[in-house]
Design a protein around this nucleic acid. Sequence first.
DNA 1: CAGTATCCTCATTGATACTG
DNA 2: CAGTATCAATGAGGATACTG
Lengths: 139, 139
Amino acid sequence: MNDISGPSAENVSLLERIRMGEILARDCPSREILNHVCSRWGVLVLVVLLDGTHRFSELRRKIGGVSEKMLSQTLQSLEQDGFLDRKALPVVPPHVEYSLTPLGEEVAMQVNGLTTWIEQNLPRIMDARQTRKTTAEDS
Amino acid sequence: MNDISGPSAENVSLLERIRMGEILARDCPSREILNHVCSRWGVLVLVVLLDGTHRFSELRRKIGGVSEKMLSQTLQSLEQDGFLDRKALPVVPPHVEYSLTPLGEEVAMQVNGLTTWIEQNLPRIMDARQTRKTTAEDS
DNA sequence: CAGTATCCTCATTGATACTG
DNA sequence: CAGTATCAATGAGGATACTG
């Protein structure tokens, strides 16, 4: 306990950790952000928008299985967090475009790393799963 | 439709996309993996285990707010996916150690990129949020 | 210590219908 | 087209008690 260079995380108070944005702290605001970003549809929205601006219906079509309600809700929370821009053109019929803000582009890159890894390693993962499936039939 | 180098994703069938592990496809197995990894506690478990082997109670203590049940459940699904190893030492009182498999280490690195980004950019994010809060009082 | 079992609550999600 | 509103169902999550 005599020095600095080690990981000081264990010496800071809970409040300090929260202020610092430590995601392991119960009430840290970063938890909420993480949940928005990692929500079932949040991840996918970010990844799709990394390809460029999309309209509501385009997102709905690309993201298999999302309902209007969930898409709308997801878009709102991500917009709230400052990750995406909503541009509603005043025409009829309505035309709304969603795109990533610079901040959003940065998170999107991070989640894209994750989704890409999963897609590419799905075979390895499915194999690893099988191995462990056999637990009850080794009579 | 005359060539190769472009993104061919739009030309493959839905079934093909599922087989390939396309995360945007409704019934792709990668969705399930993504949900385990991105679950509320899954992310945090992976990040903590990146620091090395931990016991159940250590994980519980480090991850603020997690209940025994949720931790147990999360650990099970991640183990099922082949991301972590559960070593139960046959002693009394019980002693169980959780650690990342090589596969798990790879996903953990990806999610760690995300959580680290969020922690480091929390100030920017909270600022961006404030900006958009003002929507109803511009009378 | 490391869980499982049970019960309970409430948030997330989805289907459907409606609107500017 | 781009949503909102409403209702219904599912499941995530938590509290507590119990067990090997």
